[in-house]
Write a protein that binds this DNA or RNA. Structure first.
Lengths: 146, 146
DNA sequence: CTAACTGCAAAGGTTTTGCTTCTGG
DNA sequence: CCAGAAGCAAAACCTTTGCAGTTAG
């Protein structure tokens, strides 16, 4: 019934690279990185492995603001902060607030399992670069990717 | 410099329909709905208007878990709850917790502007239907759309 | 051995864009 | 009027899939 996972070289290297990174790459970024070690790997293989690795819980699939899925080698539940200027995503060094899950008790019919909290703001670099730019880029406020 | 927005019939009807809905349709769903009143409207026009309306703040663009963008005629900042079973998205009837924005004070270099909080759980219908299904669909837990 | 996996290429689905015509103000 | 918008179709993206050959265990 349950199929046996094989640790192929491709899968192992994808996992290794993902765990090295502090960023949250898209599938294509993973492909570019892994390709430096495995020049003949295909993008399809990267997609298939990211899918499988996240199904098994070995990595995290982040489906956040923006169109492209991003992946994270860190699997503990944690929060992210996204820069409204450049789209950069960082981890946040605070513990998940489990109290939040009960905020809907008695308010909603849903049975809450967990929550996703994403902070939106400006990274240090963009705070520096963004004098007067903001009003012309209002669309970026809602989470465009780049 | 700043271009003048025209309230065309297409734009007005998109806005009207979006404000009527309690759901959070995708661009294509908006297209299907609006088409009942404007059979000749094109999908491209719907996309362009959803983009413009969200830039001006008349609607909200939700770029959440899952691939497709969804849109919301309600513009006040509010939270959403997403069903892990069927992908349905509902509004949550609690006030945004502004205290959350200061959770990163002293922890992160980012200047936080706002936050997005999304609850994940099971809607009443899926709670009912989901006896024993869960373990076989573990991939759905991370936010797949359907 | 053989089920799981890979590379490749093609298909699918969503969103954007170029172009010509039309229209709101 | 005429800048902004619409319709249409093609292009651009991102992701998934079918298939034939390869490989981990």
């Amino acid at each position: 019934m349950t199929s046996v996972l094989r640790m192929t070289e491709q899968r192992r290297i994808i996992l290794e690279e993902l765990r090295k990174l502090r960023t949250h790459p898209t599938a294509n970024e993973v492909y570019e990185i892994v390709r430096r070690r495995l020049p003949r790997i295909s993008l399809g293989t990267v997609y298939r492995n990211l899918e499988i690795l996240s199904e098994t819980g070995m990595i995290l699939k982040l489906e956040m603001a923006g169109t492209q899925k991003r992946f994270d080698g860190k699997t503990e539940n944690h929060y992210h902060v996204r820069c409204l200027g450049c789209g950069r995503v960082d981890d946040v060094a605070i513990e998940p607030i489990s109290l939040i899950d009960s905020a809907l008790d008695g308010v909603s019919d849903y049975r809450i399992v967990w929550h996703r909290l994403e902070f939106m703001g400006f990274c240090p670099k963009c705070q520096f670069n963004m004098n007067g730019v903001l009003k012309n880029n209002s669309k970026d406020y809602l989470g465009n990717n780049h």
